[in-house]
Simulated assay, not measured.
Amino acid sequence: MDYLEKGIQYMQDQEYEEAAKQFTQAIEEKPEEPLGYINFGNLLMHMNDLERAARFFEKAIELDESAATAYYGLGNVYYEQGEYAKAMAPFQQAIQYGLEESDAYYMLGLTLLYQEQFKPAMPYLLRATELTPEDEEKMFQYGLCLAQLDMIDEAITTFHRVLELNESHSDAHYNLGVSALFKEEAHLALDHFNKALTIQPDHILASHAKAKVEEALSGHNEE
């Protein structure tokens, strides 16, 4: 087992100090090899030392401008700092240089989603769900994106897929309720808001929406 393998093992065991020693050894042994810097950057990300992590990823890119995982790491640094516009380019470069992984597409999609660029976000979130169809959170975010684009029927189908993966996903029920209101199906909406509140009694949005629907139905019945 070489220094990198040992370091990764220590990192997985949350023995960060030992991991740092191994990655330092790897860098000293092969200073022109980007993997040592990438792994040290990942370690610093785990330790929430974002500024130093960025420097390690940048050094890896300096050594190999096609180091896809270094771009991905740098994108994550900017994302964690809330710099979504800045995070886009590294995520795009990670994909461009061959990182055909669900997380790369998902993170690029999220950076666009959080900038309310829903239409550009959609294909990336879709690709993320295609690569990992069992990931409920990626499926959910894709559903939110569809809803923002007023693709209500597609959003409903997607939120139902989320519930197939996790029947206790309160936010999926809440968003199905909102979607039902768009289709003027008040009783169905109420059913989903009730389910959301059964799963998560402190779901404020569902509670507020339920009260509004009940008020509207009550007024309608009085007429």
Rank of each mutant, 00 (worst) to 15 (best):
M1S: 13
D2N: 15
Y3H: 10
L4I: 14
K6L: 08
Q9P: 00
Q9T: 13
D13F: 06
Y16L: 04
Y16G: 04
Y16F: 15
E17C: 03
A20I: 04
A20E: 13
F23W: 01
T24L: 02
T24W: 02
Q25L: 06
A26F: 01
I27D: 01
K30E: 02
K30R: 03
K30T: 02
P31I: 03
L35R: 06
I38S: 02
I38L: 04
N39S: 09
N39T: 03
F40S: 01
N42W: 03
L43E: 05
M45I: 12
M45K: 09
H46F: 08
M47E: 12
N48H: 13
L50M: 15
A53G: 05
A53H: 07
F57G: 12
K59Y: 08
A60V: 08
A60K: 06
I61Y: 07
E62C: 00
E62P: 05
L63V: 06
S66H: 08
A67E: 14
A68Y: 07
T69V: 08
A70M: 06
L74Q: 10
Y78A: 10
E80R: 14
E83L: 14
A85I: 06
K86Y: 08
A87Y: 12
A89C: 00
P90D: 11
F91S: 07
A94I: 06
G98W: 12
G98V: 09
L99K: 10
L99P: 05
E100G: 00
E100H: 11
E100C: 00
S102C: 00
A104P: 13
Y105Q: 06
Y105D: 07
Y106D: 12
G109S: 04
G109N: 02
G109T: 01
L112G: 01
L113C: 03
Q115G: 04
E116C: 00
E116A: 03
Q117T: 03
F118V: 02
F118R: 01
P120M: 04
A121R: 03
M122K: 08
M122V: 01
P123C: 03
R127L: 04
R127C: 03
A128V: 13
L131M: 15
P133W: 06
E134N: 11
E134R: 09
E136H: 11
E137C: 07
Q141L: 12
Q141S: 05
Q141C: 05
Q141R: 12
Y142Q: 01
Y142V: 01
G143S: 05
C145P: 00
C145H: 02
D153V: 07
D153H: 05
E154S: 09
E154G: 02
T157I: 12
T157R: 13
H160T: 01
R161T: 10
R161A: 07
E164R: 12
N166A: 09
E167G: 12
S168P: 00
D171G: 07
L176I: 06
G177K: 05
S179N: 05
A180W: 02
E185Q: 15
A186L: 14
A186D: 14
A189V: 12
H192N: 10
N194E: 09
I199K: 05
Q200Y: 15
D202A: 09
D202M: 10
A209K: 09
A209D: 06
A211I: 11
A211H: 08
K212W: 10
V213I: 11
E214S: 07
E215H: 11
S218V: 05
G219R: 14
G219T: 10
G219S: 14
H220F: 13
E223F: 09
